[in-house]
Simulated assay, not measured.
Amino acid sequence: MDSTETRREWARRSGEYSPEYYAYYGPDETSETIRRILEQFVGRDASVLELGCSSGRHLSHLYDDGFDDLAGIEINDDAFDVMAEHYPDLASEGTFYADAIEDVLEEFDDGRFDAIYSVETLQHVHPDAEWVFAELSRVTDELLVTVENEGAETESTDGDVEYVDEDVPLYYRDWNRVFTDEGLDEVVVESSKRDTVRAFRS
């Protein structure tokens, strides 16, 4: 599966891991973790971008807590109809890009966003599109937060791949290495049962 096929799978995703699926479950502990880290390092006045925002459950949590300069990139067009239904204030006040991450990032100026975060999204970026990691470093002015599945802690899984529902690839990466190689400094690392949370200062 190449990068185009991977994007196509997410663009038409329905059922599990779809925009409706995430709206049903709403904000969760990860939403609160992101809010806490952003509040600590950049504050509520920060311009914030979520990569793969889906129907907006994490952004809605930020919005409800007083963050008001919010943006999101989402490849699945259905997400914005779901967002308008479940989080209408966010849908009307935020700025959203209905496209693939790879097709949006290059449009942004250097340091365009004070903070950028990703929740289980960068782990689906195909190796052909790894250049987006340098772009993320470029457009992040202060803080980049990754919440991604990095594989088993007991073995080296950097570069390994597994499949979600046998059709969507998940690429394990060492996100510390990826973004420190881009010149960012890691300031937070927290492990949970499913994901590792990392925050990097620009």
Rank of each mutant, 00 (worst) to 15 (best):
F108V: 06
E50C: 04
V119L: 11
F200E: 05
L62K: 05
D158N: 12
G151Y: 10
Y63K: 06
D77W: 08
F200A: 09
E148D: 08
D28I: 03
T180L: 10
G72E: 06
Y63H: 15
Y97H: 13
D65V: 03
S92F: 12
T33S: 11
E135A: 05
I37R: 01
V104Q: 06
E182N: 07
E5D: 12
M1W: 07
S137V: 00
S202T: 01
H58G: 02
E106T: 08
D78Y: 13
A79W: 11
E32P: 03
E9M: 15
E186H: 08
Y63N: 03
V132G: 02
A98E: 12
T33H: 12
R198K: 14
P169N: 09
A71G: 15
F113M: 12
D81S: 14
R177V: 08
D81A: 13
G15P: 03
A100E: 05
L105E: 01
T146E: 02
T154K: 10
T33L: 10
G66F: 10
G151E: 04
P169V: 05
S14H: 12
A91H: 09
F108G: 02
V197R: 04
T4K: 15
R7V: 06
E20M: 05
L59P: 02
L170W: 06
E74K: 12
Y87P: 05
D141W: 10
R177L: 14
D45H: 11
A23T: 07
N76E: 02
N149R: 10
E39C: 00
E150G: 01
I34Q: 01
T157H: 11
T33D: 07
S192P: 10
L90I: 12
R194E: 14
V48Y: 06
Q40L: 10
E50V: 01
T140M: 07
V189F: 10
D68T: 09
I34F: 03
E74P: 12
S191T: 15
V145Q: 02
Y171S: 03
D158L: 03
E155Q: 14
G56R: 01
N176D: 11
G183E: 08
T154Q: 08
V178I: 11
V139L: 04
H86C: 08
E106L: 05
E20Y: 07
F67E: 02
V125S: 03
Y25I: 08
A91C: 06
T121K: 06
E153M: 13
A100R: 10
A71M: 12
D160P: 00
I34T: 00
V197I: 15
M1P: 04
D128N: 05
E85D: 15
F41G: 02
G43F: 08
